[in-house]
Amino acid sequence: MNRLFPYPFLVVLLVITWLMLAGFSVGQFLPGTLTAIMAAWGLAALHPVKPRFQRRDLLFKLAAVVFYDIIRSNIAVAGIILRGGKKAGVSSFITIPLDLRDPTGLAILAVIITGTPGTAWIDYNSARSTLTLHVFDLVDEAAWLDLIKNRYEYLLREIFE
């Protein structure tokens, strides 16, 4: 099982993607499954770090939190641009010490921070485990630190560590 199907979840996702693109039918299911299994073999040959999920249930909570935050920051950034770039704070870089070490967790954190308008992931120093962000509208640095540490990093550490 493990040798033949190294990533069952990935195979299922790839088959669903294939069927969504090509149409749901048996004639598409067979080549789709074949391709997905071969893609999983290809991935296994690269020996990637396998994510260790401790608490999968919290993934949905994280998705809900991020969904809400993206709507909120969309409104905030759109408002600033429409007001001609006038904002309450300044745009500046902040450096945050991170406790999260898991590579998958860090990757998800990068997607969250970059995908949310108003914050951009600039640099991660893995030797010092510090993260450099660029914040568009920085009023209170402690509030941003609190947001990243307690809202995202806490959940990600619960999920992965």
Partner: peptide, 8 residues
């Protein structure tokens, strides 16, 4: 920061 509005 601006193009992320369009991509989100």
């Amino acid at each position: 920061h601006a193009p992320t509005l369009g991509t989100s």
